[in-house]
Amino acid sequence: MTFSPELEAKFARLVTHYPPGRERAALIPMLLFAQDEVGAITPEVVQEISRRLKVSPLEIEEVVSYYSMLHKEPRGRYHFQVCTNISCMLLGGAELFEYLKEKLGIDNHGVTPDGLFSLEEVECIGACSWAPALQVNYDYHHWVTRERLDRLIEDLRKVS
């Protein structure tokens, strides 16, 4: 399979960042960047990266299963990652997660039928002093309230 020209260029640069013979070091960034483009770590992605880095598909599966950001199933176009760890929990993060479950009608790791939204309870995302916080894809949202969540979801529905 082929990736977009931008991603191909990124991969070409990436493998030069590591010592000769150590190209496997590029594996985790490649998986994550490929996932960003394809939407999931599909069997095709595994095969392709296996071929390029000369790492067996089994070894790649080992890595994929370890890292929480790597996933084999597609997610919603907007993936809500709600932090419920301690600093966020103290300020209502867990309640926000419950609220989102109800509002989107999906459970943890669920995807809405239209494929627009998905939901995940995540561990500390490094926004503790501006809690409660969540990420939609890679974008941070701080000091989240139910009202702000309502608005955010409405806005995201409008742009799609």
């Binding site: 150590r22 070091a25 080992e62 890595v63 890292y67 929480s68 950001m69």
Partner: peptide, 27 residues
């Protein structure tokens, strides 16, 4: 200097696990 992205693992903040991850392995 190069940036190198992790992919979601607290354990990779432990220095030797970080090095494993940097080399493309489980942390």
């Amino acid at each position: 200097v190069y940036t190198h992205t992790g992919a979601g693992s607290y354990e990779c903040g432990e220095e030797s696990a970080l090095l494993e991850s940097l080399e493309g392995k489980r942390g």
